[in-house]
Amino acid sequence: MRPLLAALLVSTALPAAANDGFGGLSSTGLTFSQTDAVAMLQEDLFISVDKVSVDYVFKNTTATDVTGEVIFPLPPVSVWASWESMMNLPEDLTKPDLVDFRALVDGKPVQVTIDRIAVIEPPYDETRPVSEQYDSPGRDVTADLERLGLPITLDAGSLRTALLALPPEKQAEAKAAGLADFYEGDPAQNIPEDATASWSIVTRYHWTQTFPAGAEVKVHHEYVNRPAGGIFYWSEPPEDYQTYLVNQYCIDAGTSKALMKALSRTDETGETAAYGTAFNIDYVLRTANSWAGPVGKFRLTLDKGDSRNVISLCADGVKKTGPTTFVIEKTNYTPDKDLAVLLVMPMTD
């Protein structure tokens, strides 16, 4: 049973988030690029289990106006996982905005464009950096879906209906392209025909922004955090299969003991075990490197939500600033790795 609990934390993986990146529009859609003209002077990032907000100060360091796309991407969301209700997603999957994204520029709301592409992700590899999901999320199959008349949506009901409505030759084409599998069913056993989709959806929020020559521009955005979550089990000392958690989140001896203290419960038989709920919060920091130079002043505030919760991450300079808050501050910061936070909550009665 214990390995299954560990696997649940993997199978419920959700969209991570990323710093805003700089890019442009091309004939093939959005592209990320590098700018040497606009610097990120400040980044003030707040992350909790429910909300993410960030305030940037950018400066155009040249004597010429610079215009480009400010891009905020989500990594791929598996259609199959949403089909099985395995992801922390909104109830209404027909709406394009999964996280209620809002942006302000110099205090004024901006109209954000949302686009979606469909991809076939590479096989799961727990050693693959999260940021690679943005650089190369997978094989783009958007045109294949459009040719077959299949909707780019996470709504399982409409997808199943659309797949089953395809004529046999198009079902065969979809199967050959690795887009879907089809099942004939067995009327004698009261088993209906069925179909499952194999692609994932990448959602990107973006808007065209002009950075005036020599001027500063303040950008704020916020959205609902929907981190991965699942049942969590811990033991002291950690068992072999928990090694990846120790390494990924830098769980030291003190944190391990804190987990045991927070999670240990004795059931009616007198058996004691350490169970709880965990959220795996990922945030891609390295997209900040698409701007000119390092981040001048960087501040990250983490709020674990309740003093009984336990938080662990791999980072230097973490300071506790309140019963539930922790702060990391850096100057001239060039992110060389992305943020991975483990937030563990005791079971509630």
Score class of each variant (00 low, 15 high):
Ala176Leu: 06
Ala197Lys: 01
Gly178Pro: 04
Leu179Val: 04
His206Val: 06
Leu300Lys: 08
Leu5Asn: 02
Gly230Met: 06
Gly229Thr: 08
Pro192Asp: 10
Asp44Cys: 07
Leu8Cys: 12
Arg116Ile: 01
Asn225Trp: 04
Thr64Tyr: 11
Ser53Gln: 14
Asn88Phe: 09
Ser235Met: 11
Thr127Glu: 07
Asn60Tyr: 03
Tyr249Cys: 01
Ser256Phe: 10
Ala162Ser: 15
Glu216Asn: 14
Glu91Ala: 15
Val344Lys: 01
Thr321Lys: 03
Leu45Thr: 07
Asp336Pro: 00
Glu236Tyr: 10
Lys320Asn: 09
Pro212Ala: 06
Gly254Cys: 00
Ser256Cys: 11
Asn289Gly: 05
Val38Lys: 03
Pro109Gly: 06
His206Thr: 05
Val310Ala: 04
Arg116Asp: 03
Val246Ser: 04
Glu329Trp: 10
Val295Gly: 00
Glu222Thr: 12
Thr324Arg: 11
Leu41Ala: 12
Trp80Gln: 13
Trp207Thr: 10
Glu184Asp: 13
Ala215Gly: 00
Asp155Ile: 05
Thr61Lys: 11
Pro192Val: 08
Ala7Ser: 13
Phe211Gln: 02
Ala103Cys: 12
Asp181Trp: 02
Phe326His: 15
Ala17Gln: 15
Val119Ile: 05
Asp50Leu: 11
Ala228Lys: 00
Ile281Phe: 04
Thr301Tyr: 03
Glu268Thr: 13
Pro15Trp: 06
Asp92Tyr: 08
Ala143Lys: 13
Thr113Arg: 11
Ala16Lys: 08
Phe298Ser: 05
Thr61Phe: 00
Val119Ala: 01
Ile328Pro: 01
Gln133Asn: 15
Pro151Gln: 06
Trp234His: 07
Thr127Ser: 12
Lys51Gly: 01
Gly185Thr: 01
Asn280Ser: 13
Ser11Arg: 11
Ser256Glu: 11
Pro167Asn: 06
Asp125Pro: 00
Ala195Gln: 07
Glu169Leu: 08
Thr243Glu: 12
Ala18Pro: 02
Gly149Ile: 09
Cys250Ser: 13
Thr269Val: 09
Leu45Trp: 05
Tyr56Val: 08
Pro96Arg: 05
Ala16Met: 12
Lys257Asp: 06
Ile251His: 01
Leu8Phe: 13
Ile328Val: 15
Ala288Met: 09
Glu184His: 03
Tyr124Gly: 00
Glu132Asn: 12
Val318Trp: 02
Ala172Gln: 12
Glu69Ala: 14
Thr113Leu: 02
Ala103Leu: 11
Asp338Met: 07
Lys330Trp: 04
Trp234Pro: 02
Val70Tyr: 03
Leu163Gln: 07
Ala188His: 04
Pro323His: 09
Gly270Pro: 09
Ala18Asp: 07
Leu164His: 02
Lys304Ala: 02
Gly322Asp: 12
Asp65Asn: 15
Ala340Gly: 07
Val219Gly: 01
Ile114Cys: 06
Ala172Tyr: 01
Thr113Ser: 10
